[in-house]
Write a protein that binds this DNA or RNA. Structure first.
Lengths: 161, 161
DNA sequence: TCAAATTGTGGGATAAATACCCACTAAGTT
DNA sequence: AACTTAGTGGGTATTTATCCCACAATTTGA
């Protein structure tokens, strides 16, 4: 591993290959698969995708569902169906189940590519979050860091060239 | 709730062939047929058709009916039997039973084509909506998403912490 | 009423996308 | 130096979306 791949702990630079593939660093790929190989890829914000293990994800989803159903108790019965449909549509645009291929390699599916905004051959950042792994468009990532941790601005400016 | 076996999820772009046919993605077509091959196609809203398994459809429909009878009890439609008949007629043209042909192929019947508003050779989106599969006119779909985004915002946030 | 045109239905063929696999390089370890 | 591990590129097989044609069924029009 070259010294340039890791900037911070849990942050890795990767290039997207011609087939929209990238390799998840082995430590992260192991961590995220500890409770099973089924993963969920989600659109987090433009320029950022997040990767979850399906099981922890389900609990998140359940929280979302209970949140919805709580709101629903106030509503009419026939409205509930609509809410369920809406939730499904939401899940459909923003999430997709997937598994890693051999060598911990991830294929970014159609529909998520434009959202990430990295073209084949381009570089991106893989960042280990607490329970998920995030894929960042490099510029969005620097933006985000500057915004969240302005005190490190100089460091990142230095690193991004 | 085990979300991924139960919920119909996924967003796919498809093109309508010259004879108003399209292929339903295999995972969705399998899932929607688990409780039998009898399906119902319904007009959801202009630019959107929904495809149901006949059994869940029953309950969905029944809710619609209780909605009607509630209105009747409230006296809103009571004296206007004409309107009730009209409503029935409307409902009957609003949905039709059908089955998928080989290769998971769906023929959009006469009467539903204009409602969807996609011409032969045009593209559309196939979207999982938890309990049904929806066919969306592409522009209506992004319109809908943009419209619902603010409402979804809260749920997004709920899902991503 | 019969021919012609239109529409439904199935299936073959092709091209594209994807999954699977192996080989090679670079870096790290003993 | 030999060996292991991580990451990368690419060949190939397989799936599948879609185009296209053949034929059946239905409608149209003279």
């Amino acid at each position: 591993m070259s010294a340039h791949e890791t900037l911070l702990i849990g942050e890795h630079r990767r290039t997207l290959d011609q087939r929209y593939r990238l390799s998840i660093p082995s430590d992260l790929s192991e961590q995220i698969q500890t409770s099973g190989p089924e993963l969920i890829l989600a659109k987090e914000r433009p320029g950022c995708l997040s990767l979850w293990n399906a099981n922890p994800w389900e609990s998140h989803l359940n929280r979302g569902i209970t949140w919805v159903t709580d709101k629903l108790k106030a509503g009419k019965l026939e409205q509930q169906t609509n809410q369920v449909l809406q939730l499904g549509r939401l899940l459909s645009t923003r999430h997709t189940p997937l598994q890693l291929a051999g060598r911990g390699r991830l294929v970014i599916p159609e529909g998520f590519r434009e959202f990430l905004g990295v073209e084949p051959g381009g570089t991106l950042f893989v960042v280990g979050a607490s329970v998920s792994v995030e894929l960042w468009h490099p510029e969005r990532w620097v933006e985000y860091l500057n915004q969240q941790m302005p005190e490190f601005r100089e460091l990142f400016d230095e690193l991004s060239n």
